[in-house]
């Protein structure tokens, strides 16, 4: 057999094995398209088939999430491209239900997998969602924003800057507080619990008592309702720590105690508080719903 024929034979063998390898990779969960993957995982999870694909979102670096709707539920599947094939990923995966007559009129999530907020509301007249999520890891500020609600009550907003970066948000973290507003900006519903302990995950309904306050210009742009007080009680019996850029603060029996740090204004969990010069501000008399800012 001539050498060229031998080479051709070897190349043919290699191509056959490559085909076997591709088949094996597909058998192990690889797909030629993310849509095919989504349909397969619908059957695997026994969802759907989808009445409607709400969004087929793909990032430039090959990550994708497909959001779909089935009656009053919506579900989503994450995937990512590895080489030629798409495979399931550890991003947002799941199914949620919202109920216009129940406690959950809307649900929202943030995922670092796609650096986006997404969710659904069952209240048809909802035009936009105001949401609050604690601790933007990079700038040490909460993630507070407004997102428009699209068809079927679905909302989605991506962020180009680097937001929450800790990995446990990759699968999607519940946004603790949502407000559904109509076209005029009136709040129609709320979802989420208001915290009554500054350590709890959650949010105070932050209010600016005075819109002419000069320091408001230094705060992130927030939209709040005016003139409505919260009914929560601030309970400081639990001790917590809050690390800022220069030191540590802790809350203890109605006081904010800190070490090696003097501050005038503190911002935490959407609360703004003006301190005294000696750096040991007293929270007595502070009205619920006051915003804290940490300088």
């Amino acid at each position: 057999m001539s050498r060229k024929i031998q080479i051709a034979k070897n190349v043919f063998i290699i191509l056959i094995v490559l085909a076997i390898y591709m088949f094996t990779m597909m058998w192990a969960g690889g797909f030629l398209s993310k849509e095919e993957l989504f349909e397969h995982w619908e059957r695997a999870n026994h969802y759907g088939p989808a009445e409607k694909i709400l969004l087929n979102y793909e990032t430039p670096d090959g990550r994708a999430v497909i959001f779909a709707k089935y009656k009053d539920e919506f579900y989503f599947k994450s995937c990512e491209k590895k080489g030629l094939l798409w495979s399931a990923a550890r991003g947002p995966n799941g199914i949620i239900t919202v109920d216009s007559d129940g406690a959950k009129k809307g649900r929202g999530f943030y995922s670092n997998f796609i650096n986006a907020v997404y969710g659904m509301t069952s209240v048809e007249e909802t035009n936009e969602i105001f949401f609050y999520m604690d601790a933007d890891f990079i700038e040490n500020k909460p993630l507070v924003d407004v997102v428009e609600v699209g068809e079927d009550g679905f909302f989605f907003k991506k962020y180009d800057d680097e937001r929450l970066t800790y990995t446990d948000t990759i699968a999607g973290t519940d946004i603790p507080y949502l407000e559904g507003r109509d076209a005029e900006g009136n709040v129609m519903w709320e979802s989420g619990e208001l915290i009554n302990n500054i350590n709890d995950q959650g949010v105070f309904r932050a209010i600016y008592p005075d819109y002419e306050d000069e320091e408001k210009n230094n705060l992130p742009e927030l939209r709040f309702r005016k003139g409505i007080e919260s009914e929560i009680n601030l309970n400081y019996n639990d001790i917590s720590t809050y690390e800022d850029v220069t030191g540590t603060c802790r809350f203890e029996e109605g006081h904010i105690v800190y070490e090696n740090h003097r501050f005038k204004i503190m911002y935490l969990n959407g609360l703004r508080y003006e301190g005294t010069d000696n750096g040991a501000p007293n929270l007595e008399g502070v009205k619920p719903g006051t915003v804290f800012v940490l300088e």
């Binding site: 050498r3 031998q6 080479i7 063998i13 056959i16 094995v17 076997i20």
Partner: peptide
């Protein structure tokens, strides 16, 4: 041509082993 043949021969042997394992 010899080098191409030699490399393809080795690669084909490895591919056969991998292919048999996968199957």
């Amino acid at each position: 041509l010899g080098w191409i043949w030699w490399v393809s021969k080795i690669a084909a042997k490895i591919a056969i082993a991998v292919g048999v394992f996968l199957v």
